Computed example of a mutant assay.
Amino acid sequence: MNKPDAMLLARDKFASLMRMKNAGIPVPNTALVEDPFEVMRLVEKWGEVVIKPVVGSLGLGSVKVSDPDIAFRVAKAILSVNQPVYVQKYVRKPDRDIRVIVIGNKVLGSIYRISKSGWKTNIAQGAMAQILVPDAELEEISLKSVEVLGLDYAGIDIIEDMDEGGYKIIEVNAAPLWNGFMSATNINPAKYIVEYLIEKIRR
């Protein structure tokens, strides 16, 4: 149901994050570079970074780096296959992140994704799902991000910034998996997506 151009925008992590940042939505400091020395400088400036694929999912291929020399080698490997290097300042957070499911102009529900070990909080990486009642700020930035990207439904990944406070959106998924969401909330998003599609057709 999501429009192809909106899905392509959401799939490009950097482009979608910049669109949200320009709309005043809180996101981590992020850069897209093609010079491994620039990656080293970003690590020196930010202290700890996450290097991840520009297009990817399930947390696969994402690495956390604090050593400029290791960052240089990771960047060289990515550049060797003609891909730009997506670098994001690591935001210190609890052992969890938040997934919010939005359909139309409503928040269907949200969950914590709690890491059993390490820093990755993807369900596919072994994180546990726990139901969360979203507060007004969480709902507001989730709805705004979906509107800014032109999506009909999405899964928004959000972290709690332990240093600066508040929330930051990490990425918006235009074709989210929801096994963890269903297990924690007993809500099947597919039903509500179909209902919203029928409502759009009737309009």
Rank of each mutant, 00 (worst) to 15 (best):
G165L: 04
I158E: 07
L177Q: 07
V87G: 10
F37C: 13
I198D: 05
A136H: 10
D95M: 04
A23T: 06
D35V: 04
L58A: 12
G118R: 06
N82E: 15
G56P: 04
Y192R: 00
A15S: 15
K116D: 14
R96T: 05
G180S: 05
S110T: 11
R19M: 12
I201Y: 11
N173W: 02
V39S: 07
S16I: 06
D69V: 13
D97C: 02
V50W: 10
K52F: 09
M20Q: 09
E164M: 04
G180A: 06
I111E: 12
Y86E: 05
M1T: 12
E164L: 11
S183T: 14
Q125I: 01
D152W: 08
I158M: 08
E44S: 12
K52C: 11
E139Y: 00
R96V: 00
I170W: 07
Y167G: 05
Y90D: 00
K200V: 03
V39Q: 06
I103S: 07
I25V: 15
L149T: 01
W119R: 09
K52I: 10
V133T: 14
G61P: 05
E139Q: 12
K21H: 15
K76R: 14
P26Y: 06
P68Y: 05
Q130F: 14
A31G: 03
R202C: 05
K21S: 15
V107P: 09
S183N: 12
S117E: 12
I51P: 07
V63P: 03
A124K: 05
I98D: 10
K200Y: 02
K116L: 14
E199A: 15
Y90S: 09
G155A: 04
K21E: 15
V63E: 14
F37P: 02
L42P: 04
N105K: 12
V81M: 13
E44K: 15
M7A: 00
I70Q: 13
T121Y: 02
M7E: 00
R11L: 13
V102F: 09
A136K: 14
A136G: 00
V91N: 08
G126V: 12
S66D: 14
G126I: 10
S110N: 09
M20P: 06
D135H: 13
A71Y: 03
V49F: 03
A175H: 03
D97S: 07
A23R: 11
T30M: 06
E44L: 13
E147R: 14
I70N: 08
M18T: 13
F72W: 13
P189F: 03
